[in-house]
Design a protein around this nucleic acid. Structure first.
Lengths: 136, 136
DNA sequence: ATATTTGCAAACGTTTTGCATAGTG
DNA sequence: CACTATGCAAAACGTTTGCAAATAT
């Protein structure tokens, strides 16, 4: 949480109760958190911020690369870069599941970074298709 | 375009002037088309549909898997599954560039499909980071 | 003490909806 | 002919903004 604080300061922000709570929630359950779910989780912690505050905090944390926003089938999901993984997205029922992949793309990343003079911070990989139930 | 027509019928739709034009535009310039750009391209073809028609057509074509909607840094991009490729997304200037990758993920796809009883239709892979100019 | 954060209410833009008419198969 | 697609206007929705008060450093 010290590194987080540093990054926040670097981007001209302050480590408020809400920022801290959002980071904590994402660290606990790091994957596929929607705005709705986030609000629920905050409520449990007795934090009930205004709508605009949520927007502002998520925007700040995303811009400072502390969290990642990933829009899948039109819905915004937030995650924290930890336990890196990918997603299986069902086009039938819109369910999303994690897939572990190892660090299979590490080699490719280095190559691509070099070839394009591009500093890669992270990546996202989604497989779209139909889950077992929806293959009917 | 015959296969397209078939798919459209399968999903209870009709091959209208607008559907045809959207598919054609995406086939010509298959990558990263925004709604705005699409409207521009249609105008050149002397097709000036109502806003709601655009929404409805894009929604229909996406649901029938004829085109793909990919939201990157908050902006919706439409593509057609052709000349498969991936993206380098700059978090500094929001520029997006193609990366060719070979069919490197084919093996993985098959394995993942088998392990999860999941029928993969396509995938999207984005590398986020900073382009040469924005690394300052 | 100074600058950021917050809640509130209003403004804004995008997307969706209902309906009558036009167009497709 | 039956059914889908379209344009229009209104409604609904999510997001952004300006400001004064509260809070963090």
């Amino acid at each position: 949480m010290n590194k987080v604080h540093k990054t926040i300061k670097l981007f001209g922000g302050r480590l408020t109760k809400i920022k801290k709570a959002i980071i904590e929630i994402l660290l606990e359950d790091c994957c596929l958190l929607t705005k709705q779910k986030l609000v629920q989780r905050l409520k449990i912690k007795n934090i009930k911020p205004n709508r605009s505050t949520i927007f502002r905090e998520l925007s700040f944390l995303t811009k400072s690369n502390l969290i990642i926003k990933n829009t899948i089938t039109g819905i915004d999901y937030y995650e924290i870069p930890k336990d890196h993984h990918h997603h299986l997205v069902c086009l039938g029922c819109n369910s999303i599941n994690k897939v572990e992949f190892g660090n299979y793309l590490k080699k490719q990343e280095k190559q691509i970074a070099k070839q394009n003079k591009f500093k890669i911070i992270n990546h996202s990989l989604e497989f779209y298709g139909y889950c077992h139930k929806c293959q009917a």
